[in-house]
């Protein structure tokens, strides 16, 4: 099955050239628990893909394996042609990989602007600077424009700990957009957002530059299918089906496992 999926993805990518992310035989075990098993995936540069699956299917573990939060038990990961399986998490980020977290991972003691500034500075060479950033600092200017893009400009001086849930989710996204990303992993960015905030989120994702690809984990199919052209379905730590949103929606097996049998 997995082999077939790889072929499918490979054939789909034929002619497009650059491959942003390639996973071959990636597995992750926690003791006897097999969280990921033989994951094979090819994602082209600029491609936007949704990963769907029930809770415990291994979606977040997949993200953790790609970003290096966890080591892979076996398999290789290539990022824009470079094997990144062995390199530490922060080095992967410096190569243009970004992620957001399902549960916001923010800096409660910093202001919104300081957080985004650090995100921009993290991939620049001046990480160890003992100087205070000037207003005309390039990274500070980037931080301002990102805050503008995610509609957080008015909150820039607030402490992160005082933000509402929705604002924190927006900041999660802002941190991932900082510093010219090439590929982003969004882990349930719409979780707990109001309908308006969801619309904003869809607009932000659709407004990303064309060369920036991403994988989005999203339970809200409405959001997922509006921001991605291709879907990978996961179940029990495996990718068991890949296809366009229509193909996935109409697939009998998918309906049985994820959407609930009988729906069409």
């Amino acid at each position: 099955m997995a082999k077939q999926d790889t072929n499918l993805a490979a054939s789909r990518l034929e002619g497009t050239g650059a491959c942003a992310l390639e996973l071959s035989g990636v597995a992750r075990h926690f003791g006897a628990l097999i969280a990921l098993s033989d994951i094979n995936m090819r994602i082209a540069a600029g491609e936007r893909r949704a990963v769907l699956g029930s809770n415990g299917a291994g979606k977040t573990t997949l993200f953790n394996a790609i970003t290096g939060d966890f080591e892979c038990t076996s398999g290789r990961i290539q990022f824009f042609g470079e094997d990144i399986t062995e390199i530490p998490a922060h080095e992967r980020i410096r190569r243009g990989l970004r992620r957001t977290y399902q549960i916001s991972q923010l800096f409660d003691g910093l202001s919104v602007l300081e957080s985004v500034f650090l995100a921009c500075r993290g991939v620049s060479r001046r990480r160890f600077s003992l100087l205070r950033p000037m207003d005309r600092d390039a990274n500070m200017a980037q931080a301002h424009s990102i805050l503008h893009a995610v509609h957080l400009e008015d909150d820039r001086d607030l402490l992160v700990s005082t933000l509402s849930h929705g604002r924190k989710r927006q900041l999660e996204i802002a941190l991932a957009l900082a510093g010219a990303p090439r590929f982003i992993l969004f882990d349930e960015p719409a979780a707990g957002l109001s309908p308006t905030e969801r619309r904003d989120l869809v607009a932000i994702l659709n407004a990303l530059p064309d060369h920036v690809g991403y994988i989005i984990i999203e339970h809200d199919l409405d959001v997922a299918l509006r921001v991605s052209k291709y879907v990978s379905m996961m179940h029990n730590g495996r990718v068991f089906k890949e296809g366009t949103p229509e193909e996935i929606e109409n697939d009998a097996e998918v309906q049985a496992i994820y959407l609930g049998g009988g729906h069409g």
């Binding site: 922060h90 970004r98 977290y101 923010l106 800096f107 650090l118 993290g122 991939v123 941190l175």
Partner: peptide, 15 residues
């Protein structure tokens, strides 16, 4: 200070 608040996120920002 950011590392104090959240190491994991700092790593995910390239630090």
């Amino acid at each position: 200070q950011a590392t104090r608040d959240n190491q994991r996120r700092m790593r995910a920002l390239g630090y």
